[in-house]
Design a protein around this nucleic acid. Structure first.
Length: 593
RNA sequence: GCGAGUGUAGCUCAGCCUGGUAGAGCGUCACCUUGCCAAGGUGAAUGUCGAGGGUUCGAAUCCCUUCACUCGCUCCA
């Protein structure tokens, strides 16, 4: 994937973004700051359009989704409940020889003989390195292999033919200070805090620590009950949110693709557990592969809902101009899934720098709400009158069948955690008692499907997708390459450019300004009278403006039958048509929204 | 965080090796011109040479430090 051509495209994109005002480096006048990017005039419009389109599609155009806008700083307990405090603060250490990084708590303990050195020198040149180093030699291996590793280390420090100094040995047991692969000493474990930390209130002490949210999802879970109450929604329903999130990434890379401050568009869609569906409808619908599942049905379990949302999300991308062949779907394999996930699909976009994740659609079970119920002590369950009624009519055989399958599922889950045999059977039985007791009363904790998209990487995908070059050759044989950004009209920062054919004719200028004023309440319009008309078209092509309007002498009535008509030029085809002013607004609105 | 490379006008880059006080093309702006695809003319603006320090009579140029970007490791719950 690292062909020069692709890097070239990224370089062109980066410089275009700056030149035309899509994306700038944050704090550029002070030398920039790693992992932060600003959106310029065109970028701000583009991003706004994309977020609006998501919001319209997910929230406004559906009855079963409500919106939320939560704060960036939340109670720190939220991040303990979600597991972020634990997983985002693991100490890490690096191999001093190969630079490979390890989680300090995941290094396998080893025993053997440690060979310590105080340094090394090079008799031929008199150079000396006085850094201490040591190598762990597993029992049974010859001492030469330890020395060989040490020699490699000092060679990296600038000695061509190092002679080791101050060798001494030491027996150790169960140490985690050495690389299991080559015996090299590791660096001291250092904390890697991927959450941005701050302090709430004037006193910066341990008790006032708070975090900038590393994802927007948790706020939705934390406000789940409030939204359920006030929106009068019933499961299945969703809560959507667009907002900033922050991660102290080790290495921000690939322009805005991995930034430390970024924006997410997340939906948490809450559904009934499969057992409840089965109790109410008799069976749970199955996924038929590669078949569109149609509109939501009452017998959908999590698998069909998951598939449904994958399809919905791809349709969204199609609606803003990304075709299916830009994507790859990656269904995570069972052993890759995070502990809380039942399934996860990554929608990958074929970026110039590689095929990378644009959106993840995870089936998270009831993990998050359960965690918050446990940590907050507040119930996250819902009550379903119909479920209670349906449960009352179930025969005992069906109940026993459901319970048996549930227990089998729990035993499998416990086995993953290392709990097996009688202990697992007993534990699963206890869980089943609690769970089915509640189901019988019509109570359950909803499960969730989470389509989670990164706005900034979507913007990058849209820019890469829109980028095209057009090479023209004039009559003198001089060829010229111009850039055209082929944004879908829905997301284009500027919808229409308005140009008087000539700027030294006041009637044309006045009429063009009138046309601009006619359209401006309804869409972004850019008026331009500088330079030749072709130049103005080209400038708008580069900004991705889908339509250009030219006001000429016919508009003013030079040919009476053409009075009040304008030339409408299409960015992608360069074709022109004449449109009457009275038809103009509906014609444009139909295409830009 | 490690290693390599890069950093000069809004953009693309020359100048650096061999120190002598900064240039080109494109773009931008103004005026003229221009009857539909970056036409032409005239004029103009724009640089703490990424930042800080050092060597030197003198630093874009040599040295050190630092920041940012690109690539390779690593990380991406």
């Amino acid at each position: 994937m690292a062909e020069p051509k692709t890097n070239e495209l990224m370089e062109k994109l980066v410089s275009l973004c700056k030149r035309r005002g899509f994306i700038y480096q944050s704090s550029e006048i002070y030398g920039g700051i790693n992992g932060f990017w600003d959106y310029g005039p065109l970028g701000a419009e583009l991003k706004r359009n994309v977020k609006d389109q998501w919001w319209k599609t997910i929230v406004h155009h559906r009855d079963d989704v409500s919106g939320l806008e939560a704060t960036i700083i939340m109670h720190p307990e939220i991040w303990r409940a979600s597991g972020h405090v634990a997983t985002f603060t693991d100490p890490m250490c690096d191999c001093l020889l190969t630079r490979k990084r390890f989680r300090a708590d995941q290094v396998d303990p080893q025993s053997g003989t440690v060979y310590h050195y105080t340094g090394a020198n090079e008799p031929a040149t008199g150079k000396e390195v006085s850094e201490a180093y040591s190598v762990l030699l597993p029992a049974g291996k010859p001492p030469e292999s330890a020395r060989k590793v040490a020699v490699q280390y000092y060679t990296q420090r600038g000695l061509a033919t190092p002679e080791l100094l101050g060798e001494r040995t030491e027996k150790v047991e169960n140490t985690t200070r050495y690389n299991p692969e080559n015996g090299s000493l590791l660096t001291e474990p250092r904390p890697f805090n991927l959450m941005f930390k701050t302090y709430v209130g004037p006193v910066a002490d341990e008790d006032s620590i708070a975090y900038l949210r590393p994802e927007t999802a948790q706020a939705i879970f934390a406000q789940f009950k409030n939204v359920l109450e006030t929106s009068r929604q019933k499961v299945p329903f969703g809560i959507g949110q667009v907002g900033k999130a922050f991660r102290n990434e080790v290495t921000p890379r690939n322009f805005t693709f991995r930034s430390r401050e970024f924006e997410q568009m997340e939906l948490e869609f809450f559904i009934k557990p499969d057992e409840a569906i089965e109790a109410m409808t008799g069976s749970v619908a199955r996924v038929e592969s590669n078949v569109w599942q149609g509109e939501p049905q009452s017998d959908w379990g999590w698998e069909v809902w998951h598939k449904y949302w994958v399809e919905q999300r791809i349709r969204f991308y199609e609606s803003i101009g990304l075709t299916r062949d830009c994507f790859e779907e990656y269904w995570q394999k069972p052993d890759e899934l995070a502990h809380y996930a039942r399934a996860c699909v990554d929608i990958l976009y074929k970026f110039p720098f590689g095929t990378q994740e644009l959106e993840g659609i995870a089936a998270r079970g009831d993990f998050d709400l359960t965690q918050h119920e446990k940590n907050s002590g507040k119930t996250m369950g819902v009550f379903d009158e119909e479920l209670r009624a349906a449960w009352g009519k179930l025969d005992d055989a069906k109940k026993a069948d459901l319970r048996q399958r549930y227990i089998a599922g729990r035993i499998a889950a416990l086995a993953k955690k290392g709990i097996t045999g009688d202990a697992a059977t007993v534990e699963a039985g206890k869980e089943a008692d609690v769970y089915f007791d509640k189901l019988a009363k019509g109570q359950y904790i909803p499960h969730v499907i989470e389509p989670s998209a990164g706005v900034d990487r979507l913007i990058l995908a849209l820019l890469a997708n829109a980028y095209s070059e057009l090479t023209t050759t004039d009559e003198k044989g001089k060829s010229e390459t111009r850039v055209v950004l082929k944004f879908h009209p829905r997301i284009a920062p500027i919808k229409v450019g308005v140009f008087p054919l000539l700027k030294n004719k006041p009637e044309l200028v006045a009429k063009a300004k009138a046309v601009r004023d006619l359209l401006r309440p309804h869409m972004t319009v850019f008026y331009d009278d500088a330079g030749a008309i072709g130049r103005r078209y080209a400038r708008q092509d580069e900004a991705g403006t889908p339509y250009g309007l030219t006001i000429d002498f016919d508009t003013l009535g030079e040919k009476p039958e053409l009075l009040d008509t304008v030339t409408l030029r299409d960015r992608d085809t360069q074709q022109q048509q004449r449109v009457h002013l009275k038809d103009l607004l509906p014609w444009l609105l139909e295409r830009v929204r």
